[in-house]
Design a protein around this nucleic acid. Structure first.
Lengths: 159, 159
DNA sequence: TATTGTTATACTCTATAACTATA
DNA sequence: TATAGTTATAGAGTATAACAATA
């Protein structure tokens, strides 16, 4: 997928001088375009052993400890049958293990295996490496601006 | 500056104090997390009449004028049969029109309809509005940092 | 022959509905 | 009855292979 052309038409072309005090396309437009492009590249060009849906679930289990399919479905905002399938795929691949819940016989506990933890680490390494290639082309001052913004944005989207 | 640091799992959580001089997770890690979360929210919470794949194709046609399915497939990095399907869905919905190429009988020209142009405009408006809700909670200084970073990042991922 | 586009078919991820087991 | 999870089935989006039309 390409999100190469998401800006408003006015913002897109250097534009017929409007009666606006700003020459720079507005913040939301720039941020929207930069974010969607960057995420697409991150997903596509740091390709991996598992799909994005599977990676997201695996990373949740690795970072937040054992979780039940119900908790994972809520967190990922998918329906339970979708999570059954995703967890089954991760289990088949050896990245998670499913065990009975110790107290509630209805529930299942999904735990990351060593292979699962290693894979998450490796995918993050790959993605950061890809990002760093682009960041290396910026000036130190630009990198500092981006670094500060990344902290602000990460806080802004915190769940 | 944290640019050169390697990301670790510890960098992701508040983390057991390590023997590291930096407290802030490195730039690539923050940027990766902020970008992936923000893009997921943008897609999910600014939902629309068309899928993301369809929107991307429609926006390309709206912004870059009539394009052939081949050009669209290359741009979106999908195979021709996938583009046939996406264009057919957009045509059925009335957002694009398919006409014969004036010079090359093998080709087809995909043009946006008025409804297609309106939809792109509306979806962009919705997404910017959603983003602005989050941005409104930042301080003016933070917004300025994010604004500068958005320009830098947009240039960094330019294709 | 090479290129553009389509049709046929299959796989993945998502969903809803219906079912089982347990609380 | 309510909850957790699964199975059955279907729709969208992707792919490869094979085909038709045109250059």
């Amino acid at each position: 997928m390409s999100y190469a052309n998401e800006m408003t038409i006015a913002a897109e072309s250097p534009a017929p001088a409007q009666h606006r005090p700003e020459r720079r396309p507005d913040l939301a437009t720039n941020l929207r375009i930069a974010t969607l492009r960057l995420s697409r590249r991150l997903r596509n060009e740091s390709s991996s052993e598992v799909s994005e849906a599977q990676y997201s679930v695996l990373a949740a289990v690795v970072h937040n400890g054992p979780l039940t399919p119900k908790q994972l479905a809520d967190r990922e905002r998918v329906q339970p049958p979708s999570m059954t399938r995703t967890v089954a795929a991760l289990e088949d691949a050896g990245y998670v293990a499913r065990t009975p819940h110790p107290e509630d016989g209805r529930q299942v506990v999904v735990t990351a295996t060593d292979a699962g933890r290693d894979l998450v680490k490796e995918i993050k390494r790959r993605r950061n490496a890809w990002l760093n290639k682009g960041l290396a082309r910026l000036t130190p001052a630009e990198r500092e601006v981006v670094a500060e913004a990344a902290v602000i944005l990460r806080r802004m989207v915190e769940e």
